[in-house]
């Protein structure tokens, strides 16, 4: 029983890390209907920029500020040079544009900072805490705290600020939002910057976990089943989806994996998401779209 609990807790904490990435997707999708496949590349760029600056003896806070500035510039550039020229194009065109963008950002990251791997120490002890015979990672607890704080900040932002309300209006109905005077390009710029900030936070946490290296951009693959399960347009869905996927894949790996020769967690999350998609296509918390045809 202790072991089951340990696997469950470990899975939930891993799920939080997936949620961090998924939130970046949700922000963009919610306001522009675009599935931003470049989220992983943005995460890699943020982490690589930060760690490269720190290695060049730029102080921690200054490196954070410069990286944040870089993410803002990237957000502005994406809106100006990618999204604006493609306005009113079908969603698949926009998706393909972000797919191309991910390669451009990945290539630019390595071109600018090199292909070396880097260690990233955020000063958080990774030794486990033992509670009732169960080992819990201090780092994962810290990451869960950061994810919780970020969700809280996003909820307050969406509910209490003018820009946040504009986000929601655009998410609800772009044409109606335009008709009441909301400037769509400005909202898009803001949301890409917000996604850049999320990429920075998740990049630092994932970077501290894996090391800062090219594979960071592959963590998007962990976020996709989370989005299918939780819904593409719900921050709460990203959190719940992440927890469910994290727990399910770990339990499956330990208890079902041996029946298949092991190594099933890579595809199990997708099978679970696919099964869920058949039952509830909009995900747990996703908005159900009803269109008149």
């Amino acid at each position: 029983m202790d072991f089951l609990l340990e696997v469950l807790v470990g899975g939930l904490l891993s799920g939080v890390m997936y949620s961090l990435v998924a939130i970046g997707f949700v922000l963009i999708y919610k306001t522009s209907g675009v599935l931003n496949f470049a989220q992983g590349a943005q995460l890699l760029f943020a982490a690589l920029t930060f760690v490269s600056l720190v290695e060049r003896e730029v102080p921690f806070v200054a490196a954070l500020a410069i990286t944040l500035g870089a993410m803002v510039v990237i957000g502005l550039a994406i809106e100006r040079f990618v999204l604006r020229p493609l306005v009113n194009q079908p969603p698949i065109t926009l998706f393909m544009a972000t797919l191309g963008l991910s390669y451009v950002i990945e290539g630019a990251s390595q071109l600018l900072w090199g292909a070396q791997v880097h260690g990233l120490d955020l000063g958080i002890d990774d030794a486990p805490i033992e509670a009732a015979g169960i080992f819990i990672s201090q780092f994962d607890l810290f990451a869960a705290g950061i994810a919780g704080a970020m969700v809280l900040a996003l909820v307050l932002f969406f509910r209490k600020t003018r820009t946040g309300l504009a986000f929601r209006a655009v998410a609800d109905d772009q044409v109606a939002a335009l008709s009441v005077g909301i400037r769509l390009p400005r909202v898009w710029v803001a949301v890409w910057i917000a996604a850049g900030v999320v990429a920075l936070v998740s990049g630092l946490l994932w970077g501290a976990r894996l090391g800062v290296q090219f594979s960071l951009s592959l963590v998007v693959l962990k976020a996709l089943p989370v989005l299918v399960l939780g819904g593409f347009d719900s921050v709460a869905g990203a959190i719940v989806g992440g927890l469910l996927i994290g727990a399910a894949e770990k339990l499956a790996e330990v208890y079902i994996g041996p029946l298949f020769g092991g190594g099933i967690e890579g595809w199990f999350a997708y099978v679970a998401a696919l099964a869920f998609l058949l039952v509830r296509p909009s995900g747990l918390f996703g908005q159900k779209l009803v269109e008149r045809v």
């Binding site: 072991f3 340990e6 899975g11 891993s14 594979s215 592959l218 330990v254 190594g263």
Partner: peptide, 21 residues
């Protein structure tokens, strides 16, 4: 006991808990 880690290997909690057991 031979335990597989799916590519690329950025998540190994389940495998190491199995090893712990």
């Amino acid at each position: 006991t031979q335990i597989e880690v799916p590519h690329p290997g950025n998540e190994q909690q389940a495998q190491w808990l199995t090893i712990r057991r």
